[in-house]
Amino acid sequence: MSVTSPVLSTAGRTIEAHWQELAVRRRLYTIGGILFMVLAMGGSFWFANESNAGKFFDRLPHVFDFIGQLVPRDGLELWRALFDLPSPYDDGSLKYNYPEGRVYVTESAYIPEYIYKMLETINIALVSTLIGFGIGFVLCFLAASNLTTRRWLRFFVRRFMEVLRAFPEIVIAGFFLAVLSLGAIPAIMAVSIHTIGALGKLFFEVVENADMRAEEGLRAAGANWVERVWFAIVPQVLPNFLSYALLRLEINVRASTIIGAVGGGGIGEALRLSISRAHEAKTLAIVLLLFCTIVAVDQFSAWLRRRLVGNQAFEFGG
């Protein structure tokens, strides 16, 4: 069948021409965008490769060597490292000194070192999330345009939260490490401050979308600002707030692990040390523990969020 182009009216021809024009422009944009991305990516990789200690193609065959380095001397070593049981290979070096890390609760009962450190990390995350929730909760109402009529206050609170959110966590941790020298407080401070900013931003967006009728009703009854917020807004937004806080908890467990690795204590530090010292069984034990914990926290949080706000829980927060 031969295809004959249909005869078009004047209007049809105009539309056809316009469509062609649009198509050409769209294609141009697409090609331009792709070209830009290719160039940007190429440049990025070249730059990354140039400024890296090892070169990509030199190192590529060896990148996954670490898997080989992770094989312990026998399968049981993993459990010995995890539960601080004595190792038959103990030669007095740090590599096999599992029982030395035991944290004794009573004379004979102990918490294995890594589980104790994992608990430390989880508690850092939990405390930070609670602190961040509390302060973010207070701040968000001051940042919401439907509750705070003073422009300057809103502006100030919003910028303040943005700075808290963007402020590099590592600097806060480093500063408090310099002052306090050790302990979990630097990590708690760093993670909490970021959490205040991140949750505050999410919270005030929720508040701004809240239904204001109840608030108006209470205003007409002579309630003051605090009472209006507490009774009219909080009941509406609390499930969403809690859902965001749980998401934040997931993120904070990871964040406090990382902060730990740069000196904040907890499991992160143990991991960094054992990887850098090539203690295969210890590394494997920590990775396993961390993996299970993160999966467990994620599952728990997802379950709770689903209960709180139903299926709209699948959001992500920064």
Partner: peptide
């Protein structure tokens, strides 16, 4: 996907720093 996500970014970063040496390649990976 869950595995990639749950092995924390920290762990990947430490492993790749060993693999590629310190630098942006480890961070990118």
């Amino acid at each position: 996907f869950d595995f990639l996500r749950s092995v924390d970014m920290l762990i990947w970063a430490l492993f790749f720093t060993r693999g590629f040496g310190p630098g942006p390649l480890a961070g990118i990976s």
